[in-house]
Design a protein around this nucleic acid. Structure first.
Lengths: 157, 157
DNA sequence: TATTGTTATACTCTATAACTATA
DNA sequence: TATAGTTATAGAGTATAACAATA
C-alpha cells in the first residue's frame, strides 16, 4: 500500500502522454500548434469571446495569449473586435477562414480520437468517467487547499 | 452513446492538467523547470546514463536535451563523462550537488502529490489502476497502428 | 484605483536538419 | 555507412512586470 498512489499518478501521466502523442500528431498535420488548435476549437461555434474568457478556458495567460492571437490574426484565422459595452475588452472571433479551418480540423480530429474506444462497452465508459471524475475532484480539492483559490480548468477536447 | 468518448477524453485532459497544476506549482518552487526536474529525478539513484537513454526516458529529443543538460551543467547539478567503451557515448550523471537536490526535491514532492489520495481505499486504487491501464493499452495500440512503431513512454512520476 | 489587454524582457522548450567524431 | 551527441536556426510558449486606455 505504501506509495501506491505513485503508480496511479504514473499511469495518469502515461495515459495523458499517450493521448498527447496520438492527438498531437494529428493536430500538427493541420499546421496548427497545440495552443493555436485550442484557440480555434474554443472559438468554434461561438460568437467570439474576450481575451480574459479565452485565457481562462485555455489556461493561457494574457501575455502569452496576445502572441498566440497575433499569429492567428496574421494567418487571418481570427480577428480582434473592440468591445462595445466595455471598451477595455477585446473580443476575439473566428474569421470565415477560421470557421472553415475549425470545420476542416475539428470533426476529423474527434473521429481520429475515437479509435482507442472502439471496444469500449457502456460499462467501460461509466467506470472510466466515474474514476476520472473522482480523481479530478480530489486533485482540484487539493489545489483549492494549497492555493486559496483554484482557477478554471482547461477543457479544449 | 454518441461521441461519448469525448467526455472521457476531456476528463483525462482535465485530470492531467489539474495534476500538472498541482505538481507544477510544487516543482517551480524548487527553481527547476519541468524538464530539468524530470532529468534530476530520472538520474536520481542511478550511476548515470547516456544521452540516448535519458532522452528515451524523458521523451526529450537529443537536440533539446543538449540544451537542458547544458543548463543543468552550468548550475553544476550534472556532469558529462565520455563513455569508455564507446567514445561516441556521453554519460550524464548527478554531481554531489545534484544528488543533494534530488534528495531535497524528490521526497517532498511525492509527499506533496500524495494529498489527493488521502481518502482512497484499496478498492479505489485497484479501480483507478485497472481503468487507466486499460485506457493506456488502447491508446498505445492506436498509436502503434497509426505509426508503424511506438516509442517509449514518459514516466518521471 | 482597478481592470483589460499590450509590450518588453529573458528564458526555456520544440522541431528539424546539418555537422563532428567516433564506430 | 551508421550512430551519438552537438550546433544552428526558426518558432513558439512561459513568467513577470511595467504600461496605456478605460472604467
Amino acid at each position: 500500500m505504501k506509495e501506491r498512489y505513485l503508480r496511479s499518478l504514473r499511469l495518469l501521466s502515461e495515459c495523458y502522454h499517450s493521448f498527447e502523442q496520438m492527438s498531437g500528431a494529428d493536430i500538427r498535420k493541420t499546421g496548427l500548434t497545440q495552443a493555436q488548435f485550442d484557440i480555434i476549437v474554443t472559438l468554434g461555434n461561438t460568437a467570439g469571446m474576450t481575451f480574459k474568457e479565452l485565457g481562462r478556458k485555455t489556461l493561457i495567460t494574457k501575455g502569452t495569449l496576445t502572441g498566440v492571437i497575433d499569429r492567428l490574426e496574421t494567418r487571418q484565422l481570427v480577428r480582434r473586435i473592440s468591445g462595445r459595452e466595455d471598451r477595455r475588452n477585446t473580443i476575439v472571433q473566428l474569421t470565415a477562414a477560421g470557421e472553415r479551418t475549425f470545420e476542416q480540423v475539428f470533426d476529423p480530429h474527434i473521429q481520429f480520437c475515437k479509435q482507442p474506444f472502439s471496444g469500449y462497452t457502456e460499462t467501460d465508459f461509466i467506470t472510466l468517467e466515474e474514476t476520472l471524475e473522482k480523481l479530478k475532484n480530489r486533485l482540484d480539492a487539493t489545489i483549492a487547499t494549497t492555493k486559496t483559490a483554484a482557477q478554471g480548468r482547461k477543457s479544449s477536447l
